[in-house]
């Protein structure tokens, strides 16, 4: 790994990681492999899921323009979240060069987000989408689809033996890849606690971590997660500083 000068360390760690590792792949990039309903998948430490057989890259809960959404309501959060999230997305797209990108809903933080998106950011998305299919799954924050952006908006998508939707279904979970809940997990060892966003899967269903830099996390123990997984089989793939750490649900607290 190249030496990171200290000025670079000022960057939030995912942004720094993206800058350092965009050219790396596989184990070198710190990713972990898993299987969802018989489909091979790669959990990337930048927070994206890659399905090598179909050439699909999945990201979820980008929450673009979250800062602006808050500013509209009088809270002037830094206006840099969108550019930061897109830079990380660009890095992960550069790594896998996918045929298809699926953004799994809550692509924008509110309904106004995509219409008010500044032009320079809009063209950044345009450049990323060039030469590949781009699917916007609608989320609860942005149910109306996107405005003036490349790609197709749909509520859910069946593709490559998996179903992609924003909110996990309570009834049919087999082969589902969903977002919405921003899963994170807490690991405890020797009275030390570390909480990180994670991919959560029991082999049948997979929940994506939130990709947006201003999106928080919800613990796997939260009641909203109840009933979604077979906890015996559940594994959390946690986003570490430069790699994925895979820990069984039952072993999280040591």
């Amino acid at each position: 790994m190249p030496f990171a000068p200290w000025k670079d360390r000022r960057l939030m760690h995912r942004l720094g990681l993206a800058a350092r590792t965009a050219t790396l792949t596989g184990r070198e990039a710190g990713s972990e492999e898993t299987v969802v309903h018989g489909v091979a998948a790669v959990c990337d430490p930048l927070g994206a899921l890659y399905l090598p057989d179909a050439g699909v890259l999945v990201v979820s809960d980008l929450h673009l323009e979250k800062g602006a959404a808050f500013a509209r309501r009088g809270m002037m959060l830094p206006p840099y979240d969108t550019i930061a999230t897109l830079n990380i997305l660009a890095a992960v797209i550069a790594r896998y060069d996918p045929r298809t990108v699926i953004s799994l809903g809550d692509n924008f933080h509110d309904r106004k987000g995509s219409a008010h998106l500044p032009d320079d950011l809009r063209s950044l998305i345009g450049a990323m989408a060039r030469g590949r299919d781009w699917i916007w799954i609608n989320g609860n924050h942005d149910p109306d689809g996107t405005t003036d952006l490349p790609g197709t908006s749909v509520d859910e998508l069946l593709y490559g033996g998996l179903v992609f939707r924003h909110e996990p279904s309570l009834t049919v979970g087999k082969g589902e890849v969903a977002g919405h809940l921003h899963p994170s997990a807490t690991v405890r060892r020797r009275e030390k606690y570390v909480r990180r966003p994670c991919f959560a899967t029991d082999g049948l269903r997979l929940l994506m971590p939130a990709f947006g830099v201003l999106a928080g996390g919800l613990d796997l123990n939260h009641k909203a997660m109840h009933g979604l997984f077979d906890r015996q089989a559940l594994v959390a793939h946690l986003l570490g500083h430069d790699r994925i750490y895979s820990v069984r649900y039952a072993n999280l607290l040591g």
Binding site: R189, K192, V194, G240, H241, V247, N251
Partner: peptide, 8 residues
Amino acid sequence: QDAVLQEA
């Protein structure tokens, strides 16, 4: 912190 994750 990551050492804790590593251990797990």
